[in-house]
Design a protein around this nucleic acid. Structure first.
Lengths: 106, 106
DNA sequence: TTAGCAACTCACAATTTTGTTAGAAATGGG
DNA sequence: CCCATTTCTAACAAAATTGTGAGTTGCTAA
């Protein structure tokens, strides 16, 4: 269950997904993720950093630039995550086709 | 993300875990899961049934007997779930050993 | 001097999730 | 009739999570 506690949070999986494509800075993440607020992005990133899921790179520029990226360990997670999604898609397809079959008898 | 939406819920993974060992009736689940209330067990099972994660078998007895079991599809999920847990354990170990190393410099 | 940007942070509000306690239905046994 | 048993449900309370809107910092360019 430990893995799930790290990953639960309204936006964490979405953030991981975006960062799995490439490193992104705060504003980029914000633009990439529909409907997320500054606050939530900041909160979730902070937790994820604490949990060793992402790393934070600060560049001493003005205006500031902060880049986020997955840790090596988190990159290993992505393949499991993919399997989970495959399972999810299959499961959903199954359920839906089952419902369609049942409709024929109403 | 579909998979995670099905699995998120305070007790769902615990329920799946118990049911992966053997089919259980309502009261057995309740006893097997520390601190869960009737209400939550009932709610989560109902959602899981709706989502095709578990099946419900009612025996026409008095007092009633209701057995819950994983669907075939959910049994396939268990192996992925195991991988996720392995990742989680490794990740945790890594983080903790890192913290220990850092302590040496305080 | 004022405006602007990036990356936050704060106080507060609304929403969602979970917990607590009590009780309902159905029926056989004493 | 009353009680016990099992599987829920309903009303309400508390807690956790998320959202909103405004403000902060530090520098730079106009």
């Amino acid at each position: 269950m430990y893995a799930l506690t790290l990953l639960s949070g309204r936006w964490k999986m979405t953030i991981l997904h975006k960062l799995s494509k490439r490193d992104l800075r705060f504003t980029e993440l914000k633009e990439a993720i529909v409907n997320i607020s500054d606050r939530m992005l900041s909160l979730q990133l902070k937790e994820m950093e604490k949990d060793g899921l992402v790393e934070r790179n600060v560049y001493a520029e003005v205006p500031p630039r902060v880049e986020y990226r997955l840790t090596t360990s988190t990159k290993n997670l992505i393949s499991v995550w993919d399997k989970l999604n495959v399972w999810g898609d299959n499961h959903r397809a199954m359920i839906e086709s089952k419902h369609k079959k049942e409709q024929r008898f109403l």
